[in-house]
Nucleic acid binder design. Structure first.
Length: 322
RNA sequence: GCCGCGGUAGCUCAGUUGGUAGAGCAGCGGACUGAAAAUCCGCGUGUCGCCAGUUCAAUUCUGGCCUGCGGCA
């Protein structure tokens, strides 16, 4: 059951300050600054920082930073696990509740749009999760008959979901059929108006495209200088592969190609930069339609003016000085 | 210097038996409720290296030139 535990049931008066934005926008630094001065705790909304051992490549906060400010939803899964939004939603809601009970301010910071939205709104993840046997069967069919054939089948049981899922999007089609097969109910029956669940202030950090791409390039180079190659080598030695969800993380799947000798380091690094830029663009596509966001020009830094400005917004919203 | 193969979209290349050209990647826009750093969709005019010739018509044929790579000297 997602979000069903008493500990995780949100109270509408629970406050949350969320900082969203593309990778390399400086949102983590701003969050540290804000949390430090407002007596806050950080709740990560990042689908890859949940995995232990993926540190440099996911730009995880340092041990020193995590010692200084409490962080949640980081290192909560083994890389061999398949973490999911539903689990995230449940755990993050519990964290928000607990932080509010302590009288502290939760600062949600993350680049995974779906995670942020699933936390802040009443997304319904009550249908059962994965059915691995059914999935592999459906994947096989998608491979042989093609995704449109599965889409046709979906249209018969859940026309609403079929209308919203493209005939070629095998992954989403499979999930919809999976829900139908395991519950007898259409996935679309869980869809509806999304209500916000918290007293939230949402800050979005944005950068010009040129600056965003430049910062990404610099950051990837910095990751390599910090030992990304060794980090990936270590994970590979432990038996983790790119077939895992965690193995699909940016910086990891590309670096494996260098470690197994199929590409040069230079080519691998260029591939990481390229796919990170692609990702940042997708993040912006998602975040642009997010409701109620106060957009600020980045990049952010821990001691910069954005921190003061955001604390001012928070003080005005909640009538208390931070 | 000679021989061979190239020079086409930002990049890698395909193609036009002569009627001015198309893929992948990049880029731009979008979708996305259990893998979401995933998955999927839409968008392609560029002196077809330069100059001249043949032709109704040349990026495509011919000649010259420039240039890259390989080989022989």
């Amino acid at each position: 059951m997602a979000g069903g535990t008493a500990a995780g049931t949100p109270s509408r008066s629970d406050r949350v300050l969320a900082i969203i934005g593309p990778t390399a926008s400086g949102k983590s630094a701003v969050a540290l600054g804000v949390a430090g001065r407002a007596g806050g705790e950080i709740v990560s909304a990042d689908s890859m920082q949940v995995y232990r051992g993926l540190d440099i490549g996911t730009a995880k906060p340092s041990p020193e930073e995590r010692h200084r400010i409490p962080h949640h939803l980081i290192d909560v899964a083994d890389p061999a696990e398949s973490f999911s939004v539903a689990t995230y939603q449940s755990l993050a809601r519990q964290a928000l509740r607990a932080i509010n009970c302590r009288g502290r301010l939760p600062v949600v910071v993350g680049g995974t749009g779906l995670y942020v939205r699933a936390l802040l709104y009443d997304y319904d993840f009550s249908p059962p999760g994965r059915d691995p046997a059914l999935r592999s069967e459906l994947e096989e069919q998608a491979g042989s008959a093609g995704p449109p054939a599965l889409h046709c089948r979906l249209r018969q049981v859940d026309p609403q979901a079929a209308a919203r899922i493209h005939p070629n999007d095998a992954r989403l089609i499979i999930r919809a059929i999976e829900v139908w097969e395991t519950t007898g109910k259409p996935l679309s029956s869980t869809w509806g108006f999304l209500e916000p669940l918290y007293d939230a202030l949402i800050i979005g950090l944005r950068l010009s495209r040129d600056e965003m791409y430049r910062r990404i390039d610099e950051r990837v180079d910095a990751m390599v200088a910090m030992g990304l190659v060794d980090e990936v080598r270590r994970l590979v030695a432990l038996g983790y592969t790119t077939a895992l969800v965690s193995g699909q993380a940016l910086g990891y799947k590309e670096m494996v190609g260098y470690l197994d000798g199929s590409t040069s380091l230079e080519v691998a690094v260029a591939a990481i930069k390229r796919s990170t830029r692609n990702y940042a663009k997708r993040q912006m596509t998602w975040f642009r339609r997010e409701q109620g966001v106060v957009w600020l020009d980045g990049p952010g830094s821990e001691g910069g003016p954005l921190v003061d400005y955001i604390l001012g917004l928070a003080a005005a919203k909640w009538g208390q000085s931070y």
